[in-house]
């Protein structure tokens, strides 16, 4: 029996008058990779950003329904959003390292959480860089600027930065779409390794990537969840015709 980590129930999201997500319910399993796919504007990124309340930053945003993580309603007024985002890390399409050293990028999160001990910080930085499969490439230049790294390395550094605060969930918004095939495959390999310890939700426009990295795939269309199933079933025998048309490129 799979453990459900994130649940959305009757969720609707509006940006002003525009409906971005329309009365959607979904269960996202823990310690698995769930890929969200669908055409632009289908609501997949909106849903991803709802999970760590990134949408709060958009003034016209409002929602109805419920989103729970480990059974706790994340839109409850008692929820500490900073703590929530510590538990739920996020990696974006464009790698966005700070204009600081490699070390400081990874140490940044633990530091603002109050960790000062140098030894502990060093340990966290090393472990996080190792988990993000970039340690060997940067261990001799930890104090060089992060901006000197390649695009693929910067993205793995950002993943290390996310891991440094010990999250439970990692949200990825097209994490490899700006990367070359070798960097992309490193990120995909990393995703495979990370799912042992984290729940991962990834938005991707690359269908083959969804097929390669995820355990479950959810197909969104016009703000609705059309179908969610094991990835192997979605890509061999989807239940809904809309899903079939989308993944085979016959859409519209």
């Amino acid at each position: 029996m799979k453990e459900i980590k994130i649940v959305a129930k009757d969720l609707s999201i509006y940006y002003g008058e525009k409906v971005a997500i329309n009365n959607m319910s979904i269960d996202i399993p823990g310690y698995k990779v769930t890929a969200l796919i669908g055409p632009s504007g289908c609501g997949k990124s909106t849903f991803l950003r709802t999970i760590n309340r990134m949408n709060d930053l958009i003034p016209s945003f409002r929602h109805m329904g419920e989103v729970t993580v480990d059974g706790l309603n994340i839109y409850d007024k008692d929820i500490d959003v900073v703590n929530l985002r510590k538990k739920i890390g996020m990696v974006f399409q464009r790698s966005n390292p700070f204009a600081k050293s490699i070390f400081e990028n990874v140490a940044y999160g633990p530091r603002i959480n109050g960790l000062k001990a140098k030894g502990q910080l060093e340990e966290i930085v090393e472990n996080s860089l190792k988990k993000a499969a970039i340690w060997d490439e940067v261990k001799d230049r930890l104090h060089d600027s992060a901006l000197g790294l390649s695009g693929g390395q910067q993205q793995r550094l950002c993943i290390a930065r996310t891991l440094a605060v010990n999250p439970e969930i990692i949200l990825m918004d097209e994490p490899a779409s700006a990367l070359d095939p070798i960097s992309t495959s490193k990120i995909e390999e990393l995703i495979h390794q990370l799912k042992e310890s984290y729940t991962i939700v990834i938005v991707t426009h690359n269908m083959q990537q969804a097929a390669r990295v995820s355990d479950y795939t959810a197909f969104f269309y016009l703000g609705e969840l059309i179908e969610m199933d094991k990835t192997k079933d979605i890509f061999t025998k989807p239940a809904k015709k809309q899903t079939e048309d989308y993944i085979t490129g016959r859409f519209g």
Binding site: M207, Q208, I234, F235, T236, K237, P238, T243, E244, T248
Partner: peptide, 9 residues
């Protein structure tokens, strides 16, 4: 073409 679903089958 990396076929999927009915095309793959």
């Amino acid at each position: 073409q990396q076929p999927v679903a009915s095309d793959l089958r």
